[in-house]
Design a protein around this nucleic acid. Structure first.
Lengths: 193, 193
DNA sequence: AAAATTTCAGAATACTCATTCCAATTCAGA
DNA sequence: TCTGAATTGGAATGAGTATTCTGAAATTTT
């Protein structure tokens, strides 16, 4: 009997997370999200409760999407080190392809909200752990394949890789050129071998 | 004949930059700044024009202060590599001493405003260049003192160091422990030798 | 002490924002 | 086709915002 939902919740989160990414939590108005999603005010509040809930769900959606993009690298026939290299090249390409629109919602959320909102903090921490876990696995693979030395413990090098990744996202907002980002990646990868 | 200013502009910028650091540009209201500085509304608008101008001046003030803190390292009787190490240890201490209040205005500004405001972008870029210049000098010193190999070009390693620095500031907002930050620093420094 | 000129307090203005609410619309199932 | 529950558009609400303005208070120099 009920009328069916006229919109797809994931699509809405997709659009919303992109606006939050560009404009931040405090810089985004509900009206902007309504316009971008085409949703009615009532539908939005009915489905997502309030702006803050929508933000947290957008964060989670973004995190899942980004991690999924990263994990796709696993399907490629590459050794662990090559996977790491592939991921970093992809990130650099993404960051430098659209210089005017290349922020990262996770980094922005860490900067803007992490200290003010426990739920944001939880997602941000969770994202860090997931990414580091991925790196840890790839580093271990690389060791098994003897492409990186056995004494370079995956557990200590994975935070280093994640740190570089976060750095790149800030650098790209600070006027760094693609060449510079690539050079940072090269030095980082050299540190592994 | 005129009444003298009842407040010190630098002190106001000090307080304002700290609030902007904690709450971001869009998250900060003029009223909060008035309360924290004790200034009257009229005095603030008389001295700083508007919120946006105050923000840019706060950014510049913060940048100068941070760079000054970094440059103090130059006074110590250390070789280039030791100076780099000292700076990173200081940053890690600062980041982990007040876990609940350890953001960096420059990183936050890069995330929140860099793409939306040319003046913010200019300060953020300028900060990057100043920091990298400092690192370049220290790396060159270290090469002269033969503590790092001659083939590690300061020009390519200084962006790497700045990248690590930015990463640390994001990591500390993402639940990284002091031990983890230190470990990132150790790997970074190992990459230099 | 008076004058000159700034500082200051706070009311007033003119938004913008998140959220609520209600009436009108829509549509799956009987 | 009719019905009932959900969806929807958009007006209404109420709080918060940056900024302006006016007149009173303050203070240094003459």
């Amino acid at each position: 009997m009920p009328k069916t939902k006229q919109f797809n919740k994931d699509k809405v989160l997709e659009v919303a997370s992109d606006i939050f990414r560009q404009r931040g939590y405090n810089g985004t108005s509900i009206d902007e999200i309504l316009k971008a999603t085409g949703l009615s005010r009532s539908s939005l509040y009915d489905s997502f409760n309030d702006k803050h809930t929508l933000y947290i769900q957008s964060l989670e959606h973004y995190k899942n999407l980004e991690m999924h993009r990263y994990e796709i690298t696993d399907d490629k026939k590459l050794n662990g080190l090559q996977k790491i290299e592939f991921l970093f090249k992809e990130v650099v390409n993404l960051l430098s392809t659209h210089p005017e629109d290349n922020g990262c919602l996770m980094v922005n959320a860490a900067a803007e909200m992490s200290k003010k909102c426990d739920k944001t903090y939880a997602v941000v921490c969770n994202n860090k752990e997931s990414a580091e876990e991925l790196f840890t696995n790839w580093l271990a693979d690389a060791q098994n394949d003897k492409v990186i030395p056995a004494d370079k413990s995956p557990k200590t090098y994975s935070p280093f890789l994640f740190n570089t990744l976060c750095g790149l996202k800030v650098m790209s907002q600070s006027g760094a050129s693609k060449a510079e980002l690539n050079s940072v990646v090269k030095v980082t990868l050299d540190a592994l071998v």
